[in-house]
Amino acid sequence: MDTLQSKYKTVKVDEVKEWFKAAPISAFSVNGGACVKYKDLQIAVFNFERFNNWYACQNLSPAKNEMVLSRGMLGDHKGVPKIACPLLKNTFSLETGENLNGDLEPIAIYPVKIKDGFVYIGTH
């Protein structure tokens, strides 16, 4: 169980070694999410227009170990952007990865950059 999760480590903007070119902006629905394949990782990317921002996190639900977070609902918790897991409605901050309605371990968060109409994910 730990092995799958251990592949996902938060990347801070100043640690980015490579920006992975994921897909054109148009492939992501507004205020929704989609999943990007990067090497053997699955990364959920969200175009949260109401926040005027893009976010990315692991696609792996830490509660159930299923690849589903990109299919969850976006929202805010006291002003913090969050994603709700479609399986059991655990919610996570998209800024810190912290579990907002329980004691699950935080999820990994990745930086997102938009350039020339393309979405890039920051990786180590």
């Binding site: 994921a22 992501f28 394949k37 690849m67």
Partner: peptide
């Protein structure tokens, strides 16, 4: 139909299933 693919950047399936 687009929203029913697991990845946006690949036709691969979810290999975790």
């Amino acid at each position: 139909k687009d929203r029913f693919s697991h990845f946006v950047n690949s036709d691969d399936r979810d290999d975790n299933i």
